[in-house]
Amino acid sequence: MPTTTWNRHHILSLADFTAAEYNTVLQTAASFQEVLSRRTKKVPTLQGQVVANLFFESSTRTRSSFELAAKRLSADTLNFAAATSSMTKGETILDTAKTYLAMGTDIMVVRHREAGVPNAIAAEMDRLGVKVSVLNAGDGQHEHPSQALLDLFTICTLIDPASPRLELLKGKKIAIVGDILHSRVARSNIWSLIASGAEVHLAAPPTLLPKLFAEYILEEAGVINQDFVISSSPTPHYFGLPRLRSAQVAQYKSPLPTPQLFLHWKLEPALQNADFVMTLRLQKERMTAHLLPSLREYHQLFGITSTKLQLCKPNVKVLHPGPVNRGVEISSELMDDPEFSLIQSQVTSGVAVRMALLYLIGSSKV
C-alpha cells in the first residue's frame, strides 16, 4: 500500500484533487487489483466498519461495485432503496441519513438525481461533529468521482500495469464524445484528465455542448475566466488554464504542460489522432427539451464505429461508463470488440478503485 498520508475526509468532487491524491488512489487501487486476482479476495482492512449505500437513484454497476468493494474490505454493508423506504411516507433525505448514522454507519456512499445531495449530507455530518465520511456516487448533472477515477485507472494500467500514475497521460489526446451537457461523468473526467496534462477534446452537437460550457465548469474549480482564448472558428474552441486560485496552484506546479480543453461541434477533429475515446450515454431522462432531431441522426454524426476510429491512432481504445445504448453512442460490433473496447475492463477496475476509495477514507479515521 502507498504510504502517502490521506487527509481527505469526504470524496465529493475531483475539482480540487491534487496530483498526489490522484496517484495515491491509482497506487492503492493497483494494490487491491492484485488482491482481487488472488484465490482469497478478501482483506480485513475495514472490518468492524459499516458502509451504507444510500442510492436514491437507480443504479446497477455503481451500486453493485461499491457493495462488492465494501465486502472485499470486510466491512458490514447496508443498502438503501428509496422505493421501499420511509421517504415514501414523508421522511427527508437528511432524516434518512441520520437514521443510518444512528445505526453506526461509518461511510455513506450517496447517489441522487439532484446535484448537491452528497454535499448536503456531508455538511450535516460535519455539523453534527461525527466522524462519518461521505462518498459521492453520482449527483445529478454535477459529478461522479469514482467513475472518473476508474476510467483514469483503466487507462493508466493499460499503459503501465505495474505502476499506474497520472503523468502517463501527459500529452495524450483524449476525446470525450456525447451528451456532455447532462453528464456528471464528463465533468469528473475533465478534472482528472486536465490534471494529468492530457489534451482533452469534447465533441457533441451544440445543443449538448454549449459554447459557454467550458467557462462554466472551469469556473467551478476557481479558474479565472478572463484569460481564456476562444477561437473564432466554429471548431475547435480552445480553453487554457493559465491561472488558478491559490488553493489549487500546487496541483499544477509540475513538469506537466498547461492543461488544454478543446470544444468541437463535429466529431472528426476530436477523433483525429486520438489515443483514447470516451463515449457517453445520451442522458435522455435528464433532457428537458427536444435537443436532438433523432437518435438515428445522432448515431450518424456522433456515434462511434470502427470506420470512424480510423481517424484515431492505430492502437486507440474506447471507453463508455455504461449503461450503453447500443447502436446510438457506439456500435454493437465495436462495443464487443476486445481489440478496441475497454468497457469490460472499466467494470473490473471499478471494484479495485472503489476499494481504494473506501480504504483511504475509512483508514484515515482517528
Results as ranks from 00 to 15, higher is better:
Ile330Cys: 10
Leu149Gly: 03
Pro206Tyr: 15
Ile180Phe: 02
Glu329Arg: 11
Phe262Trp: 09
Lys71Thr: 12
Ala115Glu: 15
Lys173Val: 09
Ile343Tyr: 01
Ser345Glu: 11
Pro269Ala: 12
Ser231Ile: 02
Arg111Asp: 05
Met87Gly: 06
Gly327Asn: 00
Val328Met: 06
Gly140Tyr: 07
Thr96Glu: 01
Lys284Trp: 14
Leu169Ala: 00
Ser59His: 08
Thr92Cys: 02
Thr157Tyr: 01
Thr99Leu: 03
Thr279Lys: 05
Leu311Gly: 00
Leu150Cys: 07
Lys170Val: 07
Tyr359Cys: 13
Pro257His: 01
Leu263Glu: 07
Leu208Thr: 03
Ser188Met: 07
Asn273Arg: 09
Tyr22Cys: 04
Met287Pro: 05
Ala83Phe: 11
Leu135Gln: 13
Gly138Phe: 06
Ser231Glu: 09
Ala81Val: 13
Gln226Trp: 15
His290Ser: 14
Val353Thr: 10
Asp95Leu: 03
Ala175Met: 02
Leu54His: 04
Leu128Asp: 11
Leu101Tyr: 05
Lys173Asp: 06
Ile121Ala: 03
Lys284Ala: 08
Ile180Ser: 00
His144Asn: 05
Ala52Met: 02
Ile230Asn: 11
Gln147Gly: 06
Ala29Phe: 12
Arg354Val: 10
Gln260Ser: 15
Val223Gln: 14
Met1Ala: 13
Lys317Phe: 04
Trp265Asn: 05
Leu241Ala: 03
Gly129Ala: 05
Pro293Ser: 13
Gly240Ala: 11
Val324Arg: 00
Leu319Thr: 04
Val43Trp: 02
Leu291Ile: 11
Val366Ser: 10
Ala214Phe: 12
Ala122Tyr: 03
Asn7Met: 09
Asp95Glu: 13
Ile107Val: 13
Lys89Thr: 00
Val109Ile: 12
Pro161Glu: 01
Pro236Phe: 01
Pro293Leu: 12
Pro242Asp: 08
Arg38Ala: 11
Ser86Asp: 02
Ala274Asp: 00
Pro164Leu: 05
Asp337Trp: 09
Gln147Asn: 06
Ser196Tyr: 12
Ile304Tyr: 05
Ala123Tyr: 07
Phe213Thr: 10
Ala250Thr: 09
Thr258Phe: 09
Pro259Thr: 02
Leu54Ala: 09
Ser233Ala: 13
Glu268Arg: 02
Val316Glu: 04
Thr235Cys: 14
Ser364Cys: 07
Leu342Cys: 07
Val200Ser: 02
Cys312Asn: 03
Thr105Ile: 06
Gln147Ile: 02
